[in-house]
Design a protein around this nucleic acid. Sequence first.
DNA 1: TGTCAAGATGTAATCGTTTTCTTAGCGCCC
DNA 2: GGGCGCTAAGAAAACGATTACATCTTGACA
Lengths: 346, 346
Amino acid sequence: MNRMTRTFTDVGVGIKHVAAAAGVSTATVSRVLSGGSVSPALKERVEAAVRATGYRPNLSARRLRSKHSRTIGLIVSDIRNPFFTALSRSVEDVAFRADMRVILCNTDENPEREAMYLRLMEEERVTGMIIAPTRQTADRIERLSFDFPVVLVDRTGPLGTHDAVVIDNLRATRQLIEHLVDLGHRRIGGIFGNTSSTAVERHEGYAAAMRNAGLTPEARFAAPTIAGAATELAGWLAEPDHPRAFIASNGLLLLGMVKAVRAAGLTIPGDVTLAGFDNELWTELIGSGLSVIEQPIDEIGQSAMSLLFDRLERPDAPPRKMVLSGRLIERDASDPIEAAIPASPP
Amino acid sequence: MNRMTRTFTDVGVGIKHVAAAAGVSTATVSRVLSGGSVSPALKERVEAAVRATGYRPNLSARRLRSKHSRTIGLIVSDIRNPFFTALSRSVEDVAFRADMRVILCNTDENPEREAMYLRLMEEERVTGMIIAPTRQTADRIERLSFDFPVVLVDRTGPLGTHDAVVIDNLRATRQLIEHLVDLGHRRIGGIFGNTSSTAVERHEGYAAAMRNAGLTPEARFAAPTIAGAATELAGWLAEPDHPRAFIASNGLLLLGMVKAVRAAGLTIPGDVTLAGFDNELWTELIGSGLSVIEQPIDEIGQSAMSLLFDRLERPDAPPRKMVLSGRLIERDASDPIEAAIPASPP
DNA sequence: TGTCAAGATGTAATCGTTTTCTTAGCGCCC
DNA sequence: GGGCGCTAAGAAAACGATTACATCTTGACA
């Protein structure tokens, strides 16, 4: 026990040692461990030997032989985005309960990193992969064929080759716009991410809803980060005739917008009303003037895992796209600024 | 290519196919792939064969034979806590650059889950493990010996058997208290988590700093969650003679406290001043009356990985404890309430 | 009582790599 | 020109489990 030199080169006990200790064959040990049929007597002896030797099965060997990795690859584009954090937690939780592990891959919206991680998934022979890809990579993935189920989350490609879980972005954006219109806003700017299909859809929903209401869309695009949105909105607010309401295509952008508003010395909802996606904890703190679409993140993660498991059982079933819906959380500016003012063209 | 039935049972090409395609032995292929010495001619042929066959090395087989898993186990207690999110990102980033993968383990401060994940780390034969354990598990870990380096982050045990990266909690808490005292506060309550060594240290620092200033500590403990702190503080605020300043031992608790204050119809910094740990993005939004200790999270993650790599090279060096320091970010209540009022015993 | 099926156990092949060992070839030096 | 060392390459062992297959025991049933 008190080795004077540690070496970290595993010289641990293997299944052979256990077998020897229990006086049985390795096959029997294996069967005890994986629930094969063995007599109670032997089973007990083996279990005792396992305890006595402190045996830990070597998962690499097990995987190599059994061809089951019991591993889920989770590839997210920005783990600092609370949406993906919550998603990770949800996926990890399901995996844990299914006795599977999760390899965490963070790509920072970088297609090169995505590509490397895709390759890793193949080399790991993962049981399945859950990924929120950039637009670029989504296209690639849809053209590629994998030896394991792939589930796209939050983001999809145009082809729909793989299973997917998304929310109804068009509907959600429409709700958001209608809400702002109800409040009396006529000019509503939008800042959207420039890397994801989700941002694209939300932009489309925004544009459609605006036109539907007889209003003119004013959209700008930014890197999907706090700083990206803050810079973009700061510039916008510096323009003489800027809108008094804005929406953002995700929580990070929304926070960036709040910061920009504050930095410009303006108040919410006094000067500016905001709205956007993700019911992040801090949004509640703003109090009024910041309505959001809450996404059912836990359900997204759980659904993704379900789709994945289903797919393992029916590899040839047609791909399923699961569309969940967001929930509008109204945190109104009680006294909207432009309520009485007629709409003016940009 | 257009298989009519997908099966997900890997029948992929192995190193043998590549070897055959290139007209060489598997040993040569292996050497090409891992940078052994082969003639340029063969090397080229092998690389062509790899490309042509779409060969993906089987990592399980590789690990089994080579005994290097190139895998880091990361065990955090609550991935939804932005501190751990940032830590994960940092660790993942270093791992990625070192061509290693990260297994994500979230324990929800649950010792049973921690135990299962510890076992998993052994079975995975990880290269190393980075863990933020509960107090209970920290004690266990310190008594246990592992076949791989273990680095404790954020939290430690009393024995110091393993490498660790922490911040100077006593100093940080002292800074926090001194700052509040400078602002004129005499009664400062504290809410601390009840699962981590970190919370304990911060409580000790708090108590010491208070006594040092001739003040009476008033500490309470709660589950380290938003709800935990919110409930605790709500009750506290309902008491007739409660403090007007509070500190929290982490960001989650701090947010819970903000919510409780708001829910009680009180204002920050008007009625209550808060302070605590973790410079989370939302804290800035409060503006005034909420000072925080910013932790160098990226550096913590990077240092943990460094300690781990160092340990691999010198297994027998004495354990190192790396103590980083937090930075006080003052967001003052400019006009502290009790400034002119003499201290009153609780 | 003999046959057969079913269940328990052991033997040995196997998974896909890396690595050790061997051999072949080549240049160098005395 | 023979011995020596060095490098490139292949053959085969090894990694540690699972599992196909063979063997043996036992009980049921005709």
